[in-house]
Design a protein around this nucleic acid. Structure first.
Lengths: 332, 332
DNA sequence: TTGTACGCGTTATCAA
DNA sequence: TTGATAACGCGTACAA
């Protein structure tokens, strides 16, 4: 690996001069600067970011912790983070926690060991776990859609309440009155919030929420959760259902097809997330779009602000309703 | 940030002793070792990977270059790489090239500057671009499903020919004789290979390939490409079609629904990749499964072998056929 | 058993 | 305009 010392030797100057010449320091004479720059190119020199980090006590690296990359939600968030990061000269260290608090702590330690300048975590549970350790680390942490309260933390999140309201108001406008909600206990906090939005919308329409229309959450893969929730709802008089996310909604749709239940004629279905598959299922899924790319971009911008010692404020992003074919007017 | 020197000062020993104590060097007396380890924990010490990299001339970092994370294909490959990497004590720097050769070169330079130990690139075009520079870098590069030939490079790929053969043989077994192929020019190399597999399967069945059944590739988003290809095929007597990938196949399926063409009764459709949406579309898509997770794992293992100066050999992975509902027997 | 000194590659400070 | 030196944090050869 060629270093500035190698170049210095070849040019017959000190490595200090080389360093200055390469960064265009005006104190170096134009001729030597040019000579050294050419030499550096010829020798295939690339400055060592490791040494620079060592010296500057800054790595220009952001640690990104996700539950799993396989989650269609996560993908675009990462994309948003990466694009903003790279534009600002930062690189992204990607780690997965597999939704396991222990692994989440483990990767946060790894990232700290690697001296990342800032950490971004999606759907975290880390906050409540060990605040004293976070205090020790002194690494700013930005949470995306975090599932836990905590100090030392900054956050960017989607407005779950507002999104859920959009979904349920849409169903109400179509004439539905008996509307179910299928939650999850794998994301307790946002599931509670979407439930709150659901109840708020019903409340504003003067409808009393009916616990019978809310199948108790079970810990299962989302697709099966949807099928199972359908079985429960069929024992009720529900004419529409709002699901915690698209995968659950898709599982429910597939179960409808198996059981010969017409969507939306017999049952209207709304999801949440707007993942890619939502537009391809049949009928295409009406859902609530989370601005995922924006979520990632905003998180990274907030991270940059933190690094520049700017004031930052927690952000709440609004969702948009995407009406497709899985919802229709109430049939009497 | 607390360093071994801080601990040394607090313990009244030299930083050398601290260093040795913390890595359990048996030359240190058990009492001082214990004392120092406790002290280190209390002070919240984490060794600096930056300094360690500096000293060891090794970063234990792998650079991963993908076209875009949004590609459902890429996701699992990254997952495979990350899991093997982390198990081996490596971290992953993730970069996107957006399928732009310039950006691809740019990120490779960035990764080199950061002194990653090895680089993994998916669907690369980098190989042919600047072999002399790659020779300078001296960073081993592992390519996944690469689209270009080149030296200094190691590769892991899926057997496109075999996968395509599986798909077409399946259609032949169902009685189809007039089978179309919808390729792409965005992945020229693997599209050519899948075409080769298609032709090979036909050949073995004693069928002459008919160029009329192969809509000329156009540079468009995959979904539209599928719709457009269907329009072309409807002017022929094709009874089945094999698509370069699932997104094209899904686009074709959606177009069929719009035009009222029954799948598989009037047209059998096969995709390639087995992305998540393939199981959710209606009818569920018969497709060729690429072992994506394995692809990523294998690439990272090969990377580790390279770092340990072991012999490595380019690998070709076999695909599996996944029969769902979009293919059926030829109707006479 | 412990400590001293040095180097990894870069940049800032001070001196010439 | 250029150079010598030190420092970032760690690990190791060598000395005590």
């Amino acid at each position: 690996m060629v270093t500035i010392k190698d170049i210095a030797k070849a040019a017959g100057v000190s490595h200090t001069t080389v360093s200055r010449a390469l960064k265009g320091n005006p104190v170096i004479s134009p001729e030597t600067r040019a000579r050294i720059q050419i030499l550096a190119r010829e020798m295939g020199y690339t400055p060592s970011a490791v040494a620079q980090s060592m010296r500057a006590q800054r790595t220009h690296t952001v640690g990104m912790v996700v539950t799993t990359i396989a989650d269609p939600f996560v993908v675009q968030v990462v994309e948003g983070v990466e694009s903003v990061a790279r534009a600002a000269g930062y690189s992204v260290l990607l780690c997965t926690s597999h939704d396991d608090p222990d692994q989440e702590i483990d990767v946060v330690e790894t990232l700290h060991r690697r001296r990342v300048d800032v950490i971004i975590v999606t759907s975290s549970r880390v906050g409540s776990l060990y605040p004293e350790r976070l205090g020790q680390l002194r690494v700013p942490i930005v949470l995306i859609n975090n599932q836990s309260e905590g100090q030392y933390l900054y956050s960017v999140a989607v407005d779950d309440v507002q999104g859920a309201q959009l979904a349920v108001e849409h169903l109400l406008k179509l004439g539905h009155r008996r509307i179910g909600y299928v939650g999850t206990n794998r994301r307790p906090r946002s599931s509670r919030r979407r439930l709150a939005g659901y109840e708020k919308a019903l409340d504003q329409a003067g409808i009393e929420p009916d616990p019978a229309l809310i199948p108790p959450p079970v810990s299962k893969a989302d697709i099966e959760r949807g099928a199972e929730a359908l079985a429960h709802l069929l024992t009720t008089d529900a004419t529409a259902v709002f699901c915690y996310n698209d995968l659950i909604a898709i599982g429910l749709l597939l179960a409808c097809r198996q059981r010969g239940i017409a969507v939306p004629q017999q049952l209207s279905v709304v999801g949440f997330d707007d993942i890619e598959s939502a537009q391809f299922v049949s009928p295409a899924l009406t859902t609530v779009n989370q601005p995922r790319l924006q979520l990632g971009q905003l998180a990274m911008r907030m991270a940059l602000d933190l690094l520049n010692r700017q004031e930052v404020q927690d952000q709440l992003l609004l969702c948009k309703l995407v009406v497709r074919e899985s919802t229709g007017p109430l049939k009497l």
